[in-house]
Structures are given as structure tokens and as C-alpha cells.
């Protein structure tokens, strides 16, 4: 799951080296924390949060296969 988010985030931002993903795994829920360079924040969120929503949809689909709820948190 972590690798998936890293792959997506790195392809979206100007500073891929600054992408950091932390995975916190619970029993039913996995929380993914995404950190990007300040100036890249808009690129992973998008207009009206559309990029973030798309990422969440993709993570949710990946989580469904593992029977997990996936929560994406974008850190400032």
C-alpha cells in the first residue's frame, strides 16, 4: 500500500525525493500519511481536492482486496 502511494505521489510532484509515506497499520484500517514538499502540496490535492479524491479511490480499491479500510492523510 505504501509503495502504491509513493509511486503515485512521486509521479505528481516536482520534488519526488521529498515524498515521504508512513504506513500505520491497524486491524481493520490502514492509515497512510503522505508528506510532500510545501510547494507540491497543491499537486497532490488538486482543484477542489480532486486529485486527493482520486488517490483515495485508488487506495480504497487496493485496500478492498486486503479487506482493509484505507485512510489517506496529507500532512502539511
Amino acid at each position: 500500500m505504501k509503495e502504491l502511494l509513493e509511486f503515485i505521489a512521486r509521479a505528481l510532484v516536482d520534488r519526488p525525493d521529498d515524498v515521504v509515506v508512513t504506513e500505520i497499520e491497524g486491524e481493520q484500517t490502514t492509515v497512510l500519511e503522505l508528506k510532500v514538499a510545501r510547494e507540491d502540496l497543491g499537486k497532490v490535492i488538486g482543484k477542489q481536492g480532486r486529485t486527493a479524491r482520486s488517490i483515495r479511490t485508488i487506495l480504497a480499491a487496493a485496500g478492498m482486496k486486503l479487506r482493509k479500510r484505507v485512510v489517506l492523510e496529507i500532512l502539511e
Binding site: 503515485i8 509521479a11 505528481l12 486529485t51 482520486s54 488517490i55 479511490t57 485508488i58 480499491a61
Partner: peptide
């Protein structure tokens, strides 16, 4: 929903990559 999300994200990724 997933198809649309994939298309949107891939378009975004394409801009840079």
C-alpha cells in the same frame, strides 16, 4: 468511479512524467 479516478490521476502524472 475507479475508472474515472485512474484516468484523472494518469492524466495528472502524464503532465510531468
Amino acid at each position: 468511479e475507479l475508472l474515472a479516478a485512474l484516468q484523472f490521476l494518469v492524466q495528472r502524472m502524464a503532465r510531468r512524467t
